[in-house]
Design a protein around this nucleic acid. Structure first.
Lengths: 227, 227, 227, 227
DNA sequence: GATGAATGAGGATTCATTCAT
DNA sequence: TATGAATGAATCCTCATTCAT
């Protein structure tokens, strides 16, 4: 019965998973646009045309990879988190989930972080929805943290995306052999995010003295118009 | 007659700058590989062939953009920093410099952060050298901070790239109209980086209690083999 | 086990007929070359591979459609015509047969009229034979008409194909809801063909006065070499 | 200045004309869909990519051919027709124009008559507009003829498209060497159309005696459901 | 009889780049 | 300096067809 789109599931699914895995690797290494479907055919030992039995366009392939990642991410988060009273712990669990996933699926991570904008149209929209709801989880936690622990008057978006930035950027520099193993790594990152890099305990306010920072808007006007 | 390599510099430079600026915008918006030289011709109102007077290949164009950014970045940093005794202040100046540049040249920033790996061969190597020396500046500062202020036993690479991550990631989410203006924005980011998001003053050690974090390496083994 | 060439005929034939009917519709609507075997699979709710039990190639499918049409056309003609003495009546019957078939099987008609040259090799040749013999029927009738009724000195091929042209062209414009019903339609067409559109009875000779027509060969030399 | 779409006109136009002419020939011989752009490249001794300087898609190429034909057809008609009082003469001039064009540009004629439906979207629409206005010219003439000369009660659409059918069908059978030369050919066709093939003068009404014709709607019900 | 899975060949189109002028 | 015209190479994708089951 199945006519492209709903092939029989047993073999199909296994093969598709293998294709997604292999493609993610190549996309991560060469970039989505530099990767030709032929590259994927070669890597999967399939024929060019044979691949198209499993996806309709190269872009759909990218979409499938990203979609699966987000779904997995959210699903594991929901399984890992308990209605604990401690916000801070929940944030920690979120970060553990996020980094754990990323370090164990570095190719997919890279693809998600980097090939974000390679999707267009409906594919882009669908991923955007997933991503927004995923981001909202962390943002809500941080908001709760702010309001609950008294807060330092941090900008919510800045606080949220700073953590995402720290975490997502790792694909550009993290080497398993060179850097800390996962558990320690997570600890370090959360330590920085929660307590900062400075040793001292008390928050010194005003802690900065730069003249430029004080002048507000014009502070960096010299930056206008490169070079 | 001026030929390639030694064109009369007056007009040449101005025009080239305009081309770089325009190209950076398009690269930022469509991505390097999705951008065709025709797109650039259209945007600069030049003929396709005419452009090739100013660069030899599309990749060189990307290189020129990135090179100029790094040179500017380093140059301004050197001008802005004084042999101050305070490490923390120097880090702040570095961040101000970095973010100031990024927010005032968002297209170039995006291109630097995102089209990093689109360079190959010699171009890639040259940029790598520049980038490494730029990263080293911050890394050295943080090392100094660690050793001087007593330190919290942070991993140097993690601490360095966490700050870069926070800063470089902004191209994915920062909207001038929606988010904080530059000066406040820098302040927020440094506050998080220096003191963390938690309110409290004293560092609680051990501050975390997660069982998974304690188990070390195996902690996230469930992540193996997506999905 | 029935194998290709001698399948059990009962089910086979019914199913084949259904496939031919469906294919004719799609060929008519999208054109032979634009139609993929997948389109036919979809429309017949069969699997792609399943179809190939009923025909060996897509071209054979087209051949079968055309062949069946011609055979039917000739067969019904032979059944309808009586050794009447009146040539004119026999021509009328031929036209009724032809148009009756066409209007009742518009998809097949379109395919016959339009996808004529989509056949190649042996298929083409076989259809050509059928077509020639079919055309010959009408041509012979018209020849008989000419010689018998005295004739107007008409060119035989021109007279024959003019009628075919009038009839075959209808697939491009005839709409059942908009145009005359079959019986009246046939009448109109034959009236034009037999008596012309002009009202008058007597043939005016010379009926034309155009100077260009008189100049013979060079008349339309301005047409040479478009535009 | 020119950037695809408005190239400089001198050389461009000549070359484009040559491409159109060559393409029309191939389209006529192999059919539009069977013709690959490579075929055209070969026939024009240009490179595949080089062709795309002159048109954006293969379909546009077909459009250009058809458009030019219709424009030429209308333009020459307007130049040829005089506000003569005689409708019949004007119809004759129309037919002369149409057939003259067709016989002198048989490839283009075939393409117009046969590859009609190969256009889609806007291209199709534009040609449809041209075609409708072209058809309207003849239809108006025939209407005038009907009302003026008294008329035989002919259906307007049937009368109009019968003539078009006779004329347009010639691409399927006309051979310059075998058939009548243009002037005589036009004469024959008009004679049939105006006076019919029957010799006699008077219109016999009712001129037909077929029983089936009299039964009206059900006349050809045997045709239902091929075979 | 029927189908899921696979493939070789070919198709339209785009692109970076060049070169004569 | 600048450009119109041209091109080789590559890209994504579709298609008719097959074959083991």
């Amino acid at each position: 019965m199945a006519n492209r789109g709903e092939p029989s599931t047993r073999h199909y699914d296994e093969k598709l998973q293998q294709i997604l895995k292999t493609s993610a690797k190549i996309f991560a290494e060469k970039g989505f646009h530099r990767t030709s479907v032929r590259d994927i055919a070669r890597a999967t030992s399939m024929s060019l045309a044979g691949l198209y039995y499993y996806f309709r366009t190269k872009e759909e392939l990218l979409f499938l990879i990203q979609e699966q990642c987000f779904l997995t991410l959210v699903q594991r988060w929901e399984k890992a988190v308990k209605p604990e009273t401690d916000v801070r712990s929940r944030i920690r669990i979120f970060a553990e989930n996020h980094l754990g996933f990323f370090l164990h699926n570095m190719y997919e991570m890279k693809v998600m972080a980097h090939e974000d904008e390679s999707l267009t149209g409906e594919f882009q929209e669908k991923i955007l929805v997933l991503k927004r709801s995923y981001v909202k989880i962390l943002m809500d936690l941080i908001e709760e943290l702010e309001s609950q622990e008294g807060g330092k008057g941090l900008d919510l978006r800045a606080a949220t995306f700073s953590l995402f930035g720290m975490m997502n950027w790792i694909y550009t520099w993290y080497h398993p052999k060179r850097d800390l193993p996962l558990a320690k790594f997570v600890e370090q990152m959360l330590r920085i995010y929660f307590f900062g890099v400075l040793k001292g305990g008390k928050v010194q306010e005003p802690w900065f003295t730069s003249s430029s920072s004080e002048t507000g808007k014009e502070a960096f006007s010299l930056w206008q118009n490169l070079p």
